[in-house]
Design a protein around this nucleic acid. Structure first.
Lengths: 135, 135
DNA sequence: GTATTTGCAAATGATTTGCAGTGCT
DNA sequence: AGCACTGCAAATCATTTGCAAATAC
């Protein structure tokens, strides 16, 4: 993926910090602020948490990133893509994408409810196979 | 609903503050901390925010309440019941339950993924019919 | 009577803001 | 050149903690 183009298409300037944020998120799939901060500091020791917050917020505002809210945990962020489901392990915290297309369901509920639908999220959580072993 | 029984069944003591919290949430369906605090102060002017947080956390821990996490907004809380979907209006903030049973879907994904599933949440958001008018 | 809960005040944690300097286009 | 972005420090907002008094059982 070309992050420079992605930023420009969303009307944002290209900075090394932003490229770093995007490539870290892409590599992991989803990241929370704190992990992201640690990760990015490896490449940009000078980056500040304020800059990270500002960039995340800007990119969420222009819908380049999507915030994945989690009950009882801090949100994670992912690069926007087609609506899909998420699976969280409550023990190790790993968050995975599920290949489950939500488009049709969204369209149906939009029709039934008369809402103008903007977003659909399906979130499952439980204990992953690895963590089940460790009891 | 009998809140005293509900509390006892979950191993918690019955206090007037807890009864107030539960009846406020039940009346509204879902509430965030701040609305809840304002609402409860009408009946218990002396209640403190710390007490409210402690109780919410305790009741979420014993699964009497469920936290509904929302992207970009503070969580809301509801009394635990069968897994159902939620519909949020991004403009007015109203959160509604949808009569959409998630049990079968959860069972299927549990089987496919080998996770021990604990929870499933389907969250849709958009603009409600009323708010669409106001453009 | 004992353990829990409450409410206050203070502490901590998370996020945002203001501003001077720097970098992008 | 002009506007947006960065990084720091400080401010704000959200949540938790410690403790003494009150309450539940």
């Amino acid at each position: 993926m070309n992050y420079e183009t992605l930023l420009r298409e969303h009307g944002l300037k290209v900075t090394p910090q932003r490229l770093g944020i995007l490539s870290a998120i892409q590599e992991e799939g989803h990241m929370g602020i704190d992990d992201l901060f640690l990760q990015i500091k490896k490449k940009f020791p000078s980056i500040s948490l304020a800059t990270l917050y500002k960039n995340i917020n800007t990119m969420v505002d222009v819908e380049l990133l999507k915030e994945v809210a989690l009950s009882g945990l801090k949100s994670r962020y992912e690069i926007s893509k087609a609506a899909h489901a998420h699976l969280l392990c409550e023990k190790c915290g790993q968050l995975k994408d599920l290949d489950f297309d939500l488009k049709d369901l969204s369209t149906k509920i939009e029709y039934d409810s008369h809402y103008r639908m903007k977003r659909i999220d399906l979130m499952l959580s439980g204990i992953c196979p690895d963590c089940q072993q460790q009891d």
